[in-house]
Design a protein around this nucleic acid. Structure first.
Length: 623
DNA sequence: CCCCCCCC
């Protein structure tokens, strides 16, 4: 059957600046992931060359949706622009064709296949993704393209004459174009081990870091890392120094590549978010080549989502995958890190999932600034870092983490459906980031106020914890409650707008109600000394045996009774677990103590402590 | 060969 002939060589001419209306063929069309606007990218062919950076102008998006841009479609390119995209360190840049108008000549299903044998257009000789000429290290499976691929070549070792001893001896005189990795047997990424050094993998780049430099005792240099995935697994690869220069610009997220000949080592799970047991280091033998077809078949990221409720049990510093709905988001907060002096920006976001738990996610820097929480998007994170804070767990984005908004994966659609149709905010059962409760279980030593002082407890950067038996001397009645944001996870003080509404700056919202929370200052004394300490809501409610709400409401009608409710605990003894830390307010520094818990005295435990203390002081009764 | 990822 006769189709219009493709305008052979036109892609090259267009890239070089020609204006014409060539006839071309579509070999693939896909949504560009991660872009804020819906954009589609076409793989087009003129029968001789391929061009994979043809972007559909957004007013033509409907053509993709109605199916008129199916694979193999023959079309005339009526109007287009070309532009050069500079990737970060690529002064040469790459030509992009922006398609403004298309006339479909033959729908793809009437064509049924690829015309000719188009090859990727080398925009510049040294821009070839294969990099500089490198010796082949694996044998071609066969010279004939009709020979089916088998894995035998790897299993049997030197099964063809072209394999020299140890593979490294393969003729280095081969021109780079003679090494075409797509003609080799492709190994599933999951099967890579250091015990098998002859492999070619094909995968989609799922993550890529910036170039980072380092300097330490062992030297200095630069590096970047990336991850690539096929249907079986995902693996991390790192390039150092020369390999950074050679490959950084060739590695693009979402591009599919072939790769062979890297060093392999065990993955360090502290920093490697993939599930792979090993990771790769690029070296001077490494060959990477772009894949210009079939790439839409490959998956991008391998997730193993942990229900948010389970994060409570995760080890600090572990890396986990999480998916949830961004339920609330705070503002970007800028501050100076006290230890490093660096200016930092962060944003706290709350995720919720159908385990009916919420977790606080911390975003940093650009991720914090660029985060758009509108319409409560689904957020998927591969490799979030678990941090313990005050007994609760939070997660944060670290380098190597991958965050996707509204990911087009089944779990993403499920999460959306659950949140929009089934989720009831009142049914959220757990905030795994909640600080109270957890911290009261921490092991603390018995230390008196006097000892704390002479030992300079809490004078360093890190908070320190201790416990002592103390008597409440005086509860400060002024400002012992405040009106806070009514949202369950937000305890920010609200601004009374004097019109019956209350504004929460953190949630950027106004409410008609608020909730009371205790923030109580009290003087407590053990047998050595006394200190002013601060009790937050949960601890104060336990000590007073009343909720802040009850107190606040009572205060409004009978302040004497309300006052009695607080002074009621004067001269009562508790075991106080205390957190002591330097706090900085402008110029002044204060060694501040917060009450982690105040519990009635367990005399059995307390006496055991006294006995032990006595024994060690006197040397009597010690074995 | 990096591997810091910050703060309350």
């Amino acid at each position: 059957m006769a189709h219009p002939a493709l305008s052979e060589g036109s892609i090259k001419r267009i890239v070089d600046g020609s204006q014409e209306q060539p006839i071309l063929q579509i070999l693939g069309a896909k949504l560009i992931p991660n872009s804020d606007n819906e954009r589609y990218r076409l793989l087009i062919s003129d029968g001789v060359h391929l061009h994979s950076f043809a972007m559909l102008s957004s007013q033509l998006n409907y053509m993709f949706k109605e199916g008129s841009l199916s694979d193999f479609t023959i079309f005339r390119l009526m109007r287009f622009n070309t532009s050069t995209i500079n990737s970060k360190n690529d002064s040469a840049g790459k030509r992009v064709i922006v398609i403004l108008e298309i006339n479909v000549l033959v729908p793809g299903h009437n064509v049924g296949g690829k015309i000719g044998n188009p090859l990727p257009l080398d925009q510049k000789p040294d821009q070839n993704i294969a990099g500089a000429a490198a010796p082949s290290v694996v044998a071609p499976r066969a010279t004939s393209s009709f020979t089916p691929k088998t894995t035998g070549i790897y299993n049997t070792g030197a099964s063809t004459s072209s394999i020299g001893s140890g593979y490294g001896g393969y003729k280095s005189s081969l021109a780079k174009n003679d090494i075409t990795l797509k003609d080799y047997v492709i190994h599933p990424i999951s099967t890579l081990t250091p015990y098998q050094n002859k492999w070619v993998i094909k995968g989609r780049i799922s993550n890529k870091s910036n170039i980072r430099t380092w300097k330490n005792d062992r030297g200095e240099g630069k590096l970047f890392s990336f991850e690539m995935a096929d249907q079986t697994a995902e693996i991390r690869a790192t390039a150092f120094k020369d390999q950074v220069d050679m490959f950084y610009d060739k590695i693009e997220v979402d591009r599919t590549i072939y790769m062979t000949k890297c060093s392999m080592k065990s993955a360090d799970k502290r920093f490697n978010a993939t599930k792979h047991e090993y990771e790769l280091t690029l070296n001077s033998d490494t060959i990477i080549q772009g894949c210009f077809d079939e790439d839409h078949e490959l998956p991008v990221t391998h997730y193993t989502f942990v229900p948010i409720s389970q994060i409570a049990k995760m080890e600090p510093n572990s890396m986990i995958d999480v998916i949830g709905v961004c339920y609330t988001a705070g503002d970007v907060v800028q501050f100076t890190a006290r230890t490093s002096g660096r200016e930092l920006k962060k944003r706290e976001v709350t995720l919720v999932d159908n385990s009916r738990a919420t977790v606080s996610l911390t975003l940093w820097g650009e991720d914090a600034e660029n985060f758009d929480a509108s319409y409560q998007p689904v957020i998927a994170i591969r490799g979030a870092r678990v941090t313990e804070f005050g007994g609760g767990k939070t997660i944060s984005l670290a380098s190597g983490s991958l965050m996707k908004k509204n990911p087009d994966i089944p779990e993403g659609h499920q999460m959306r459906g659950w949140f929009d149709n089934c989720a009831n905010v009142d049914e959220i059962e757990m905030n795994v980031s909640a600080r109270t409760g957890g911290a009261s279980n921490i092991k603390t030593d018995w230390i008196t106020f006097h000892e704390a002082k002479i030992r300079n407890l809490g004078m360093g950067d890190a908070p320190e914890y201790f416990q002592t038996k103390a008597i409440v001397h005086l509860v400060r009645l002024n400002n012992c409650v405040y009106k806070s944001c009514p949202q369950a996870e937000c305890n920010k003080k609200i601004i009374d707008q004097d019109d019956g509404t209350y504004r929460c700056e953190k949630c950027n919202a106004s409410y008609t109600n608020f909730k009371y929370r205790f923030l109580v200052s009290m003087s407590i004394g053990d047998w050595t000394s006394n200190r002013w300490v601060t009790c937050f809501n949960e601890v104060a409610e336990q000590m007073f045996g009343k909720t802040a709400q009850e107190y606040g409401e009572l205060q409004a009608i009978n302040s004497d009774e309300a006052e009695a409710l607080l002074t009621n605990i004067h001269f009562n003894s508790f075991i106080f677990k205390l957190r002591i830390k330097m706090e900085h307010f402008g110029d002044s520094n204060r060694n501040k103590i917060n009450v982690v818990s105040a519990t009635p005295i367990n005399y059995k435990e307390y006496n055991e402590y006294l006995m032990k203390d006595l024994a060690s002081l006197t040397g009597i009764g010690m074995n």
